[in-house]
Computed example of a mutant assay.
Amino acid sequence: MLNARTLRAWISKELGPSAVAKHMVAISTNLTLVEKFGIDPNNAFAFWDWVGGRYSVCSAVGVLPLSLQYGFTVVEKYSAPFEKNLPVLLGILSVWNVSFFGYPASAILPYSQALEKFAPHIQQVSMESNGKGVSIDGKPLPFETGEIDFGEPGTNGQHSFYQLIHQGRVVPCDFIGIVKSQQPVYLEGEVVNNHDELMSNFFAQPDALAYGKTPEELLKENVLQHLVPHKTFSGNRPSLSLLLPSLDAYKIGQLLAIYEHRVAVQGFIWGINSFDQWGVELGKSLATQVRKQLHASRVKGESAEGFNFSTTTMLTKYLKESFDVPANPPTILPRI
C-alpha cells in the first residue's frame, strides 16, 4: 500500500489529482476503500473475499491481465484427465515424497539462465501456500505437509548444493531442460555447441542420482581403497525431468501453470487451506509495534520498551547508531 500511495502521489503531482481515477485500476474485495483511495470503482475488478494475500498467475489477480492480453479462450484452453495431468501427477509425487518418505525438501533445477527467478517464485508459491500444521477445519495434522523448495539454474547449482543431494540428504529434484537455446553459440573446433554442453549435464545428473556408483564399480576402476567410501554414490534418489521444446512466453506460462496447480493439488490431498497465509500475520503485527516505537524514538526521543531483552538491546543500538536518519525524509518522486 505504501508503494501504491507513492505511485498515486507521483501521478497526482505530474497529471493532477483527477488523473488517479483514470490511470489506476484495482483488484480488491473492498470497493469502498478502492473509491476512498481515489480509484473509480468502475475500474475495479472484484474477487472472492476468501482469497488470501498470495496471488498466483492462475488466480483472480494474476489471470486478469493475462486474459485481457491474450483472451480468456487461451486461459481456458488446456485440460487433461488425471492420469495424464502433469500438475496432478507432480502433486501426487510430492505428497508421496513428503508425507510417506519424509523427504522435507525439493529442488527445482532449470537448465536455463533465463529461468533464474523461477525457483524463488515457486518457493513463495509453495511454501507460503502449503506451510500449514492444521487441516482446513483446524485440526492438527498427523503427518508432515509442505516442502522446502529451493533451486538454482544449471551448472551453478552443481557447484553449489549438488554435493548434498548426491551424497548427503535425499532431496527430490525437478530438472527442467530446453531443447532450443535462446542464444545458440557454437565455437569452431569444439566437440559440441554451448547449449549441448549445458544439456549434457541436464541428462547426466538424473542418472547420477538414480543409479549412483557402487564400491565394486570404483574398485574395478582402480580407485584407492581409502577413497572408495568418499566416491561412493548410493543412488536411488528421486527426480523427474521436464523437457520444453523452447522457452517463449507461452511455454513459461505452461510451466507456471504446472507448478501453481501442483501446489493446489498438494493442498487438496493434504486437506489444508492453501489459500490463507496466517503464518505471515504475526510478524506483520509485531512489525507494527516496532514501527510505532521507531517513530516515537526518532520524533519524541523515547526509549525502546515493551520488547524482549534481545530486541530491546538491538533496537537501542540501531537507534543510537542511526540517529542522523530523519524521521520524515524529504519526498523524492521519479520524473519521466
Rank of each mutant, 00 (worst) to 15 (best):
N236A: 11
Y70E: 07
I108W: 01
K13L: 10
F161T: 09
L187I: 09
E83S: 07
N43D: 01
T331M: 10
I178K: 00
Y259S: 05
P104N: 05
L209H: 03
E116G: 07
E76Y: 09
T145D: 05
R54V: 15
W48M: 07
Q167T: 12
P65L: 06
G271D: 09
H159T: 07
T6M: 11
A44G: 02
Y250H: 12
V95G: 00
S303Y: 02
A208M: 08
D196L: 11
I11T: 00
G138V: 06
A119V: 11
F150K: 06
K251G: 00
F233N: 05
Q69G: 04
Y78I: 08
L31F: 04
N43H: 07
V223A: 03
F37C: 00
F309Y: 02
L282I: 13
V290H: 06
N85L: 07
D324S: 08
F72C: 05
V134C: 12
M199G: 00
D49M: 12
K22G: 05
V228Y: 03
Q277N: 09
F101Y: 11
Q225T: 14
S129Q: 05
T29R: 04
G146Y: 03
V88Y: 10
V63K: 10
F203Y: 15
V223W: 06
K284P: 00
P334W: 03
I108A: 02
G151E: 06
E35V: 00
P206M: 05
M314F: 11
L319D: 01
L242T: 11
Y211C: 02
Q124S: 14
E83G: 06
E147R: 15
E14C: 03
S28D: 15
T155F: 06
P87N: 05
S200F: 12
I269T: 08
G38H: 01
T331Y: 02
K284F: 09
V74F: 02
S106N: 01
I252N: 03
E116R: 15
E35S: 12
E128A: 08
G177V: 01
N194R: 09
Q225N: 13
P330E: 15
K117Y: 12
S181M: 02
A26L: 03
G16I: 06
E14H: 12
P330H: 10
R298Y: 02
G177K: 02
S18A: 15
V280P: 01
P87G: 08
E35D: 11
S322N: 15
Y70F: 14
L115K: 04
H261I: 03
A46G: 02
Q266L: 13
N30Y: 01
G283L: 10
V88C: 08
I92A: 11
I136R: 15
V179C: 01
E217H: 14
V51M: 09
G189P: 01
M24R: 00
A4H: 09
A114Q: 13
L240N: 04
W48A: 14
V191R: 14
E260W: 03
P334K: 08
T232Y: 06
L64K: 04
V57M: 10
W48H: 11
F82W: 09
